[in-house]
Design a protein around this nucleic acid. Sequence first.
RNA 1: UCCUCGGUAGCUCAAUUGGCAGAGCGAGCGGCUGUUAACCGCUUGGUUGGAAGUUCGAGUCUUCCCCGAGGAGCCA
Length: 445
Amino acid sequence: MTNIVSIQNIAGHVGEEITIQGWLYAKTGKGKIQFLQVRDGTGTMQAVLFKPNLPLETFEAGKRLTQESALIVRGVVKENERAPGVPGGYEIDTAELKVVQVAEEYPITPKEHGVEFLLENRHLWIRSRKQWALLRLRATVMRACRDWLDSHDYLEMSTPILTPAAGEGTSTLFEVDYFGDTVYLAQTGQLYNEANIYSFGKVYCFGPTFRAEKSKTRRHMTEFWMLEPEMAYCDLDGLMEMEEQFISYIVQRCLEERVEELKVLERDTSFLEKVTPPFPRVSYDDAVERIKKIRVETDDPELKALLEIEWGQDFGSPHETELTKLYDKPIFVYGYPTQVKAFYMEPWPNRPEVCKSVDLLAPEGYGEITGGSERISDPDLLLERIHHDNLPEEAFKWYLDLRRYGSVPHSGFGLGVERTVTWIAGIHHVRETNPFPRTLGRVYP
RNA sequence: UCCUCGGUAGCUCAAUUGGCAGAGCGAGCGGCUGUUAACCGCUUGGUUGGAAGUUCGAGUCUUCCCCGAGGAGCCA
């Protein structure tokens, strides 16, 4: 069979005889006509088998096909608005059907399934339409990240995954035996990025990161992908300007390139269309006041309890959720209390209790998708902060060196890929945005 | 680590006060020329998460354990 066509390009082949290589997603049939929904990885389209037009054995072979059987279909492409698929509206009038393998009874039926069952069968679940759309969207988000950064003179620098000590000294790390020594799986590449900017100016690292925290929420995984840009000669304002351009570009790329997938996900894209610079900037001080006001005004006693806050405390997810509901765009919350943030963040001028940190909160209640800051550039201040947090000075010797040889103001942030995709896709749980999610209590498959 | 909910057929669930463990879907066979989670008929389906206990009798009650989900804290 020749002229193999991808389903995503089917619109350009109407009237032609083509071949589709794929798998049977679903099948419905009547006595003399059968409809095969065929996936090929790029989309789904209908192949029609009409008994009078086919050799009997071909029609009978079609009847024996089970869900997820591998098959190759040849026939003429026709436009037909009744034909379902992604993109819909096209079908193939089957002339030849080659059965590559008849699949065994497939566990995931087109009916409802529970989360536990689906996660146990994740290796098969990714074939389902919604999961397929979600992971295609993820790939676009990741590529858009790289495209924007690469075209703005950022250089991708790999940072180590095996690291000698805690990046920030706070989160729980996975331990790995390293020829008798203990090393840790990286939870950030930031410190290495800070070294890299002094050679390359603007850099980013992009890879998996690991947190051994026992978090069981829809926003947490133990292994997730993080993108961390870092920029020399960049202060907090410069960071926010860069972030809003960057995030807006990613969202707009998804709207352009993943129309069908967002349709499958039933995403209301009107929210995404509003994601253009500038984003609202809210100081931590203001944010606390607003949350206090919401807390006073709510009649819900449960929400009242969750929203309890005093200046100086970090926000929890309920606080973030309520804040984002006040806006229809992502918002920056900047100037968090120094005591709740990492040691390396630059203090606010004349207000040492506040630091030049900024989180980006996605709208519609999704909350934090990036966290960043301007970093301390003064060697004495950085050393003082390391001592203040009781961190081992010896481990940070190289990091302190960076402040001794041409230190400049610099900033960076980390973006959680799965959280970003979750928001853009408008879905409930981050685990579905990773092909094989690792969560507390699940490392299979 | 804490709080809440859950575990019954391959899957999704039901089972009244402690009294014969059921339905839909899937799968198999047959029928149907426009299906969209097709429809109609027949067939197939069980270590009720595990252990112990109470009882004439436990899916149901008690104790312990295992597993999962949601949330909190922490974080992207």
